[in-house]
């Protein structure tokens, strides 16, 4: 038990340090941008004003509100203090909306879209990869190149293709948004139906892209395991092949959990871009509009949230993996 605690302790400290570094990067990098967004927003507000001192006044007021008149390190401390309370400041581009407000309305969509899509893609990919490894010959000859090809279609490419085929041409599913644009979010059956039909295309585009990569990885893991000595030994003890295949896939699948943890950052990047293609009301689209409007409070908050989500998922997967794979348990916990 002491081993477990030490393992967790180490992991938690490690993730906290990573978190701090992520916060620092997320705060400072966007603020290094040469443009002056306060001037831009003042220009927008003060358009048509002729009185220079009034414009100056507005500029000062915004500078105060966004805190850009203070030195960078003070801004950072203020940012941290507010961030702990869940306050990420005010958005430049959607003034006077709060950043936390914008993100709050987007994050649910992203999580509801990406988490199931990545899990389904992972599962299907692993099953296909295992099949390819077990059946070999014909299946493998078809599945392998197809999976490899699929895994190389960029997420946005898959999104566009699905959108054009099933949205524009076949008109099976709507092509943009998270629900019908003339609806107000509520809990009615109609609204849920609309959400579900808007969900399909972004969901499957992420699933299809993640299947390929996982299948290729699972195939080579399974082939490696199928050649392991314990397979031969179990066969010579008279154990049925179907049972042995069970051992093999369990052993091959467990490391795939780490594979998922390591690739989740990359997968989310692709999936966020897929959101933009479908104008899905999630963090990807939020980030897109923030980037186009040079809205750095929104950019740093969005990237921070994404980083935190990836960190959390990676952390959870690490912990789960440590528990269910005795190979790691033996190596780490003693």
């Amino acid at each position: 038990m002491k081993g477990y605690r030490k393992y967790f302790g180490k992991k938690i400290i490690w993730f906290l340090i990573t978190f701090v570094i992520a916060v620092i990067l997320n705060f400072f990098l966007p603020r290094l941008m040469p443009a002056d967004p306060v001037a831009a927003i003042t220009g927008k507000m003060a358009s048509g004003m002729t009185d220079a001192s009034a414009v100056q006044e507005i500029y000062k007021r915004y500078e105060e509100e966004f805190g850009t008149n203070k030195p960078m390190w003070q801004q950072f401390l203020l940012f941290c203090k507010n961030a702990i309370r869940g306050d990420f400041g005010t958005s430049f581009s959607q003034y006077p909306r709060k950043v936390s407000d914008i993100i709050g309305s987007a994050i649910g969509w992203t999580i509801a879209l990406q988490l199931p899509a990545i899990i389904v893609g992972w599962l299907l990919g692993n099953i296909l990869g295992a099949l390819a490894a077990y059946l070999r010959k014909g299946w493998d000859k078809v599945l392998m190149p197809v999976s490899l090809f699929m895994s190389n279609v960029p997420a946005f490419g898959m999104a566009v293709i699905l959108l054009v085929v099933f949205g524009v041409n076949l008109k099976w599913f709507p092509i943009a948004g998270g629900y019908n644009f003339d609806m107000i979010p509520n809990l009615s059956w109609n609204f849920i139906k609309s959400v579900i039909s808007h969900y399909q295309l972004p969901f499957w585009s992420i699933v299809l892209v993640s299947i390929g990569g996982q299948a290729v990885g699972m195939r080579s893991m399974s082939i490696y395991e199928l050649n392991a000595d314990y397979v031969k030994y179990a066969r010579f003890l008279g154990i049925k092949d179907s049972k042995i295949v069970g051992y093999v896939f369990r052993n091959a699948m467990l490391p795939q959990i780490t594979g998922l943890a390591l690739s989740i950052g990359t997968m989310i990047g692709g999936a966020l871009v897929a959101e933009i293609i479908f104008s899905y009301p999630g963090l990807g689209s939020t980030m897109y509009s923030a980037v186009t409007a040079a809205d750095y409070p929104l950019i740093s908050a969005t990237t921070l949230i994404i980083t935190v989500m990836v960190l959390l998922v990676t952390f959870l997967l690490d912990i789960v993996y440590g528990f269910i794979d005795p190979r790691v348990k033996a190596a780490q916990f003693d």
Binding site: L25, N26, L29, P30, M33, G265, G269, V291, T303
Partner: peptide, 13 residues
């Protein structure tokens, strides 16, 4: 662990 995609966005920006 910090997604390279996020870093890429931040640096490019």
């Amino acid at each position: 662990v910090i997604p390279s995609f996020v870093l890429l966005i931040l640096i490019s920006y």
